[in-house]
Design a protein around this nucleic acid. Structure first.
Lengths: 337, 337
DNA sequence: ACGTATAGTCGAAACGCTTCGATGAACACT
DNA sequence: AGTGTTCATCGAAGCGTTTCGACTATACGT
C-alpha cells in the first residue's frame, strides 16, 4: 500500500480513503491511485483490514452437526448463503457444532466473525441464548419460541399449508389426510412439525373440509404402515398431504400394492420437499417446494443489514413454499371402492 | 493481552510465548499467565494473530456452483471438512464459484486463507492451473489429468469397481452390465465416469466375464429407456452395476414393469451412491458407498499437513468405496425367461 | 576459575491496514 | 479584508498479535 501511495504521489491514508470511499477524494487522484494499484498488482490484505477496522467482513454459518441424515435442501442452503455473502463482500465460514456445544463461546470470542447465521433453530436453543447473552449479532433460519426482537427468516408455514389445502379443495377433495413428521419431533418443538400441525387444522376448518392429522416416523416402513392404518380407519380419504420425504416412499409403495393408481385413486402432495426427490418417483410428485436458496440468501442479507445499519431494528421475513403441480394430484374422481 | 501480562507480572511477549509454546517458559510463570488469562476472560484475537504471524489458520473450500443438482454426498462432505478443520484449529470458509471464475484470483490475493481445498476437480481445471501459477498451497478432492506432484484424495475407483464385479461374480453372475453417467460427462473428462468405464472393462477381463458398458443421461426416464434397450440387446444379462442415482429410479421402474423381481430376475448394484438413497427403494439397494466423511476429513488433513510441514512432499491418498449388501443382489438363479 | 551453552525473559519492531485530528487551498458571503 | 465552509489531503497513532535480538541467570565441562 505504501508503494501504491508513493507511485501515485499521495499519502498512505489517501489510498485508504480512495479504497473505502470513507472520505471524498478528487476524481483525478482517485484515477492515479487506481492506476498505481493496477500496475503494482496491489490487493488489500483482508486480515489487516479487519484488524484495523474491527470488522472482519466474515460471518459464520452455524450448522448443527447432522446427527442423522441430512437433506439435499441443506446443501443448497449453504451454497446460496455463501454466494449471498460473497455478493455483499463477506466471507462465510462454516461452524458445524452440536447445538449444545460449549465451543461456540470460544469461537465467538476469537473475534473472527462479525455475525452469525443460525440454522435449524430449535424452540429452545442454547445457541440463541448464548448469542443473546454475549449480545453478538445474529440472524436465524427458523424461529425459537420467543423470536420477538430477533432477526429471522423462516418458511411461511401458514400460507404453505393453506396453499396445499386450497389446491386440493379446488380439485374437489373433501376428505384430506395429513402425515406429519414424528410425534417426537412435535414434542421436541421442531418448528415445521408444530406449525404445520396447527395450520392444517385451521385450514381445514376454514375451508369446511374434513381432515385427519397424524404423525409418522421418518422412515419408509413407517410411511408404509401409516398409510395402511390411515386408510383402514378413514377409507374415504381422497387426498393426502405429506410432510415427510422418507415416509412418502413407503406410502407410494403401499398405494401401488393395493393396486391403486396415483392420482386416480388418491392424490398426494409432498410438503416442504425438494424437486430432486419429487422427480424420482412415478408419477412425479406435486409439491410445495421450499424457497431454500431464497431463504439462505435472505438470511445472509438480513444479518449483514443488521451489521451495517446503525439503527436497532431487526428485520424479519417469512417466505411461503411454492406449489409445483406434477403428476400425483388430480380431480377427485372416486365413485366407490 | 497487555492486561494479562501486567496481572501476571511478565512482559507482553512472554504471554505470547506461553500461548504458542514458541519458546520455553517456566512452569511457574506459565501457571501465573494462564491464571491471569482465566481471571480476565482473555481470548486471543484471531485476526491480529493472523496478521502478525502471516498464517490466518483459515482454509477455503472451493466448491463449484452447483449447475445441475447436487447430491446428498456433497453436504456430508462439506460438514466433515468443516469439522476436520476445526479439529486442527482451522476455520473453513466456503467459496462457491463457477470453475472458470476470475474471482478466484481476487480471493486468493486477499491473503485471507492459508490454503485451499478444491472439490469436484475436472481433468482440465482452470482453478488448478491458477493455484499452481500463484504457487498457492492446495489439495484436491478428485484428480486433474496430471496430478503428479500435487496433493489429492480421491475414491479408489479401480478397487471400487473390482469390489462390485467380484461380488457379482461370487454370486455366480457371468454377464454383467454397467450403466455409467452420460457420454457428455465422459467426454468432458469427468473423473469418476472416465475411470470406472476403464476399470469396469479391466475387471471384467480379469475375472473372465462378459460385460456390457453403456452411458446414460442422469434422469429417471433415460434410465428407464436405457434399461429396456440394454436388455433387448443383451437379454442374458443377470446383473447391472449402475453409477447413476437418477437413472437407477428409472431402471427399477422398468424392471417392475416387466414383472421381474429384484434380485431374483436381476441383481442391481448402485455404485458410489449414498445409503440415504439406497434405502428409499424396495428392495433396498446393494451399494458401494463412498467414504464421504473420510474424504472430506482426509482432504483437510492433507492440506493442513502441507501447510505446516516444511518439507516439500505432497501427500496423496485413495480410498475405496465400501460394499454394503442390501436387498438388490442375489445368487444368479435364472433358468430361462 | 573460565568460557560456553541453555533456559527464561524482556523490549521493541514489525504485520498492513483504518481513522482521527490537523492543515491548506479554494470559494463564497458579509 | 476578514470570516467561515467545504473539499482534499497528510501524518501519526492505533488495532492485537508474533518474533527477533539481546540480556541475565544458572548449569556444564574442563
Amino acid at each position: 500500500m505504501v508503494d501504491v501511495a508513493k507511485r501515485a504521489g499521495v499519502a498512505l491514508s489517501t489510498v485508504s480513503y480512495a479504497l473505502n470511499g470513507t472520505r471524498p477524494i478528487s476524481e483525478e487522484t482517485r484515477q492515479r491511485i487506481y492506476a498505481a494499484m493496477e500496475e503494482l498488482g496491489y490487493k488489500p490484505h483482508a486480515l489487516a483490514r479487519g484488524l484495523a477496522s474491527k470488522r472482519s467482513k466474515i460471518i459464520a454459518l452455524l450448522f448443527p452437526t447432522p446427527e442423522r441424515g441430512l437433506g439435499l435442501t441443506e446443501l443448497e442452503f449453504v451454497t446460496s448463503a455463501a454466494e449471498a455473502a460473497r455478493n455483499n463482500g463477506y466471507h462465510l465460514v462454516l461452524w458445524s457444532l452440536p447445538t449444545d456445544s460449549s465451543e461456540l463461546r470460544q469461537l465467538l470470542q476469537q473475534g473472527l466473525v462479525d455475525g452469525v447465521l443460525v440454522m435449524e433453530v430449535h424452540l429452545n436453543d442454547p445457541r440463541i441464548e448464548l448469542l443473546r447473552e454475549l449480545e453478538f449479532p445474529f440472524s436465524m433460519i427458523g424461529r425459537s419460541a420467543d423470536s420477538s426482537g430477533m432477526s429471522y427468516v423462516d418458511i411461511d408455514f401458514e400460507r404453505t399449508t393453506q396453499l396445499a389445502v386450497h389446491y386440493l379443495a379446488e380439485l374437489g377433495h373433501r376428505q384430506i389426510g395429513f402425515i406429519n413428521h414424528s410425534q417426537e419431533a412435535f414434542a421436541a418443538g421442531y418448528g415445521p412439525t408444530v406449525r404445520v400441525a396447527q395450520h392444517f387444522d385451521e385450514a381445514i376448518a376454514t375451508a369446511q373440509l374434513q381432515g385427519v392429522s397424524t404423525f409418522c416416523h421418518d422412515s419408509v416402513s413407517a410411511g408404509y404402515e401409516m398409510f395402511n392404518q390411515l386408510l383402514t380407519e378413514h377409507p374415504s380419504l381422497s387426498a393426502l398431504i405429506v410432510m415427510n420425504e422418507r415416509a412418502m416412499s413407503g406410502i407410494i409403495q403401499a398405494v401401488s400394492e393395493r393396486g391403486w393408481s396415483i392420482p386416480d385413486d388418491i392424490s398426494l402432495i409432498s410438503l416442504v420437499s425438494s424437486a430432486r426427490v419429487a422427480e424420482m418417483t412415478l408419477p412425479t410428485l406435486t409439491t410445495l417446494e421450499p424457497p431454500i436458496a431464497e431463504l439462505g440468501a435472505l438470511g445472509v442479507d438480513l444479518l449483514i443489514q443488521q451489521l451495517e445499519a446503525h439503527d436497532r431494528e431487526l428485520p424479519q421475513a417469512l417466505l411461503p413454499c411454492q406449489l409445483v403441480v406434477r403428476g400425483s394430484t388430480g380431480q377427485v374422481r372416486r365413485t366407490e371402492r
